[in-house]
């Protein structure tokens, strides 16, 4: 698209959407939200960027290699956190027993592994949304 207003506004607004998504992910254990909601916000900000600037430029910002890395990296991070539970406490995805720092409830640094799992889910959901959109929009008419 060639609309100057759209380009300028999108360039200004995208970092704020992404910052809000990161805020939602990191505050998932003390406020409404979490990995799914925040990941969706980051994914939609990238979709906005793709709609305004085109697929080619968006691919330069977030390439297929990066999306493949984030897709599998999210799940592998999740499973690694679970395996820490097996090694330390004896069962998969142990939280308190695995020696994660519980902190004081209600502060940002609390709840042990829950913020880490939320970060893993957020990475996974954001990359899923942007991969779906890029794949569906790239199909050429036969």
């Amino acid at each position: 698209m060639k609309d100057q207003v759209l380009k300028t506004i999108a360039r200004i607004i995208t970092p704020f959407i992404q910052l809000y998504g990161i805020f939602i992910i990191l505050n998932g254990h003390i406020s409404p939200g979490g990995g799914f909601a925040g990941g969706t916000m980051i994914g939609t900000s990238l979709i906005l960027y793709t709609l305004v600037f085109g697929v080619d430029q968006a691919k330069r910002k977030f390439s297929e290699k990066a999306s493949a890395f984030a897709e599998s990296g999210g799940i592998i991070l999740y499973i690694l956190i679970g395996v820490i539970g097996i090694v330390v406490a004896g069962h998969f995805l142990a939280n308190k027993g695995a020696g994660f720092d519980m902190g004081t409830p209600g502060s940002l640094w609390s709840a042990g592994m829950i913020p880490l799992l939320m970060i893993a889910i957020g990475i996974k959901v954001a990359s899923t949304f942007i991969t779906i959109f890029h794949t569906l929009i790239e199909v050429k008419d036969a």
């Binding site: 254990h29 003390i30 999740y78 679970g82 308190k96 902190g103 709840a111 042990g112 829950i114």
Partner: peptide, 22 residues
């Protein structure tokens, strides 16, 4: 006290039922 998270939905999602979330 069991999970440390004040948001109970997150506590269920990522602790009690974290295998489901996987």
């Amino acid at each position: 006290e069991e999970t440390g998270a004040t948001s109970i939905i997150s506590a269920i999602l990522a602790d009690y039922r974290s295998f489901d979330t996987l």
